[in-house]
Amino acid sequence: MLKRVHFPPSVLPYLLVAPQVIITLVFFIWPASQALYQSFLIEDAFGLSSEFVWFENFVYLWNDEIYLATFWRTGWFSLAVAGLSMSFALVLAGFADRVVRGAMIYRTLLIWPYAVAPVLAGALWVFMFNPTLGIFPYFLEFAGIDWNHYLKSGQAMLLVILAAAWKQVAYNFLFYLAAMQSIPKTVIEAAAIDGAGPIKRFATIIFPLISPTTFFLLVINAVYAFFDTFGIIHAITQGGPAGSTTILVYKVFNDGFVGLDLGGSAAQSVILMFLVISMTVVQFGYVERKVEY
């Protein structure tokens, strides 16, 4: 936590932390407390007066079927993105770990989607799936599938999930590969001598040993799906059709900046804040437990 020896007391440490503290107070703490305060207010239609209403905004959200639907949608959207992306990455990492030479080449070829901005990922996928021009709808038509994510909510959600998962594969792959490579080779060899084949070894030795990484990635992917997918959704569906791809973050943005419902948007922000806090607590509380090799 702290060094045994220190520099003698002076004003210097205060000057050193000043930039970070000032920025944190002005752009983090103050706005967050404002959001908290506003979540207890209801403004009239013209924004001229506001009334302190305690938890009315939250009660309203609780009874709002659209909000509840968004809440659950966000949940399973996150699970779908995390599950798809992590299992794809796990398989690739499992095979890359077996490659003696060239593992780094595969790594190089697999990591760069990480560098693509979410909104660009959205643009790429929306182009590939453009109903009139896109490559994929062209081929899907032969299979008898009529693709139009502008009209069909299931297809819209599928496209958003695909784009979001695609971008995150790189990250998951890196962490899985690193975790697998840190397992001592002797452990694997001991299992081989015990008679476990490659698949059995993966299932009974490697996968259990990398379970902390899986847990860690689950949290990171959930946070990613909650917040960083805004650009993807904004580019592909703008939350549509009929709100079927609206997740919590998108709704905060929509209600606040487009709908100008300050109190409602602030209450949603506060709920999001609690979600982030609980995820952070989970991440710090459990991820620290590492497997002893």
């Binding site: 983090f28 703490i29 706005p31 959001a35 917040f227 943005f253 606040g256 982030v276």
Partner: peptide
């Protein structure tokens, strides 16, 4: 104080910020 900023991504405080 610095730790708390971890829990306040820009998305949850966009309007007031």
């Amino acid at each position: 104080l610095i730790f708390i900023t971890l829990m306040l991504p820009v998305e949850v405080r966009i309007l007031p910020t």
